[in-house]
Write a protein that binds this DNA or RNA. Structure first.
Lengths: 342, 342
DNA sequence: TTGTAAGCGTTATCAC
DNA sequence: GTGATAACGCTTACAA
C-alpha cells in the first residue's frame, strides 16, 4: 500500500516546522544549508513524495498541460501526425517538468465539455490544441476566458488573440505544385481532406496560387476533398482519373491519404509515377517505406511540438506576453513518386 | 479571467450550508428534491464548476487514470497501435467520466520517475501499461505498491499478481504460420521486433510450434529480429533472402515492419506475393492501403483498449478483486500478400 | 433532511 | 532563518 508520508511527518522527524520543510522543497534561499541538508536527508529516508493535489490547491498551479486531440470518431485521429507531435510535445514538457493530461472526445461536444472541465476544474495550467478548424467552440471558449493556450495550426480568426505554431502551408503547397510544374506537368489535381480544417484551406490556396502564377486555368473538377480514407475517396479519385483529360499529377495533402490514392491508382492499372506523379505532405514514417517511396513535404513535426510547448509555457509564466504566430519551416523530400509527364 | 465560483458562494446564494451543496453535487439521496433543484439552479446561474484538486485532496481519489507509453526514443512508439489503443481507451474512460494523464519518457528511467510521481503524488487512481517487456521496473514497482493497474500484453512474471489484457499471440502466430504452410510453403522465415517484448517472444513461440507440428526443422538463420525499421532491418532481410535456400514466405510481427520488408524485397527486384508471401500482424489502417494489401492478423485493438479500462476501473473500485488474464480474440484478414510457392 | 466543523497536504503571510 | 497559522475548495463524520 501507499503510505502517505506528509510534510508534517518530515517536520516532526527533523524537528522543524512544516513550513520549513515546504521551503526546503521549494529550495528557498532563506533556509540555511544545514537544515536543508538535514531535511532532505530525512525526506529520502522516509520516502517523501509531495501530494500534487494539495500543492495545486494551495499554489493555484498544477504543473500540467492539457492536450486536445481532434475528435476520435474522425478518421483524422488515426493520422500518424498525432503520435509524432505527441512525442515531441511530451519531450518538451518533460524537460520543463510538466505533466500531460489529454482529451479525445468522440464528438465535438464531448471535447468541449472536457476542455471546460480541465480549465474550470483547475486541472491544467494551459492547453495545446492539436488541430485548427473553422468556428471551433474550444478556441472561442479559451479566448473568451483568456486562458493560456497554443494552437498548432493557423487560427481561423481572432488571430491576434492566439499564439499559434504552424507551417506556412500556403507556401509549402505552392512549392509542391511548382515542383510538379517544373517537371513539365500542366494538368495537376488537388486532393484535400476535410474542408473545415485550416490546413486543407491553406494548401488549396497554395496550389491555386502556383497554377495562377503559371498561367494555368484552375479546374474545379481537378479539386476533390475526400473525407474518408477509402470508401468515398476511392470513388472520387476514380472519377478524377476518368475525366476526358485526367490530371497527370496530384498534390495530396496527407501521406496517409496518398497511400489510399496510390492504391486506387494501382487498382485502375495505372502506375505511380509512370502514369501519374504525386507530391504529398507530412513525411510520415511510412512514406519512405511505401511503394513507391513518396515525394513529400516534411513539415518538421519536431519543431511544431517543441515550439508549441515553449510558447505555452512562456504564456503561462507571463500571461501578458503578446501573442505570436510562430512559423516552422518545411522541406520537400524528393523520393520516387514523381516523374516527367509522358 | 477564470473567476472561481466555489461551493461556498453557491451555499450563500442558496441559503444552505456548503455541505448541502456538496451533497447535491454527489447527488446524495438524503437531500430533498426541492433543495436539490434550487441549488442546481443556482449552480447553473453562477456557473459553478468543481475544483478537482480540492475534491481529490479531500476524497483521496482523482478520477483520472494514467497511461504509460513505451519510451518515445524507441521506434516502437511510432507504431499506429498506440494511437489506436489510445483512441479506445479514451472512449472507455470518457464513458466512466475519468480523465487521462499520460507519460512518455525518452528513457526507461524517465518513465519510471514519472510513474512514481503519478502514483505517490496521487495524480491518478490507476494505471494502464501499454506495453509488456522483460524485467520492467514499472511493473515491479506497481506490484510492490499494490497499486491498481492493468497491463496490455502478457506479464513477464508475477502473472498472478497482475490483471492483463492480451491476445493469444502464441496461437495467433501459430495460425498465421499454418496459413502459410497450408498454401504449400515449407521454408518460412520469422521477422520479429525487440526481443525483450513479450509480443515478440510469444509470436516466435507460435511460429516454432506450427513448424514443429508440421515436422519442419526450425532454422535459426530463418529467424531475425530487427530493432530498427529501415537501416538495420534492411540489411537483415537482404541477408535472409540471399541464403542458398531463401524462405518463400515470411511471418512478420508488425504491419509497419512489413512495410519496410516489402520495400526491401521490392528493392531486390522480387515481388510480393509472387516471389515471397507475407503474413503480418495488427491490421493497421494502412495495411489495407499498402501495395500489395497485407494479409494480416487483426488483434482487435478496440477490445484490448476497452477491456483494459473496464478491468482497471473494476480493480480501482474493488482493490481486492482477484487479478485476471483477459484474452481478446484475433482474426486473420486475408488480403493479397500471400500466394502459393512457385 | 440539513448544518457544523474537522481534515485532506500543501503554500503563503505574518510574526519573531 | 524559522515558526505559527490561515488559507486553498472540497468531503465527511457527527450533531441537530
Amino acid at each position: 500500500m501507499i503510505v502517505a508520508v506528509t510534510i508534517k511527518d518530515i517536520a516532526k522527524a527533523a524537528n522543524v516546522a512544516p513550513s520549513t520543510v515546504s521551503r526546503v522543497i521549494a529550495d528557498s534561499p532563506k533556509i540555511s544549508p544545514e537544515t536543508k541538508r538535514k531535511v532532505k536527508e530525512i525526506m529520502k529516508e522516509l520516502g517523501y513524495h509531495p501530494n500534487f493535489n494539495a500543492r495545486s490547491l494551495a499554489s493555484q498551479s498544477t504543473q500540467t498541460i492539457g492536450l486536445v486531440f481532434p475528435n476520435s470518431g474522425n478518421i483524422a485521429f488515426q493520422n500518424p501526425f498525432f503520435s509524432e507531435v505527441l512525442r515531441w510535445i511530451s519531450e518538451g514538457v518533460n524537460e520543463k517538468h510538466y505533466a500531460i493530461q489529454l482529451t479525445t472526445g468522440k464528438t465535438e461536444e464531448e471535447i468541449f465539455d472536457d476542455v471546460v472541465k480541465m480549465v474550470q476544474g483547475k486541472r491544467v495550467d494551459g492547453i495545446i490544441l492539436l488541430y485548427s478548424k473553422e468556428n471551433d467552440s474550444v478556441i472561442n471558449y479559451l479566448c473568451e476566458k483568456n486562458f493560456p493556450f497554443v494552437l498548432i495550426g493557423k487560427p481561423y480568426h481572432y488571430s491576434d488573440l492566439i499564439t499559434s505554431v504552424d507551417n506556412d502551408n500556403i507556401l509549402a503547397a505552392k512549392e509542391g505544385t511548382n515542383y510538379l510544374l517544373n517537371l513539365g506537368h500542366k494538368r495537376i489535381g488537388f486532393i484535400g481532406g476535410n474542408k473545415n480544417l485550416m490546413v486543407t484551406k491553406d494548401r488549396l490556396l497554395g496550389y491555386k496560387w502556383a497554377l495562377m502564377e503559371a498561367d494555368i486555368d484552375i479546374r474545379e473538377d481537378y479539386i476533390i476533398h475526400e473525407e474518408f480514407l477509402l470508401q468515398g475517396g476511392q470513388e472520387a479519385v476514380k472519377e478524377l482519373l476518368s475525366l476526358d483529360e485526367p490530371p497527370t499529377a496530384l498534390l495530396v495533402v496527407d501521406d496517409l491519404m496518398t497511400l489510399g490514392v496510390v492504391r486506387t491508382i494501382h487498382d485502375m492499372n495505372l502506375k505511380v509515377p509512370d502514369d501519374i506523379s504525386i507530391v504529398s505532405f507530412n513525411n510520415a514514417l511510412f512514406s519512405e517505406l511505401s511503394n513507391p517511396p513518396l515525394t513529400t513535404i516534411d513539415i518538421n513535426i519536431l519543431g511544431l511540438g517543441l515550439e508549441a510547448v515553449k510558447g505555452l509555457i512562456a504564456s503561462i509564466d507571463n500571461p501578458n506576453e503578446s501573442k505570436k504566430r510562430i512559423i516552422i519551416p518545411h522541406t520537400i523530400i524528393e523520393r520516387s513518386s514523381c516523374a516527367r509527364p509522358k
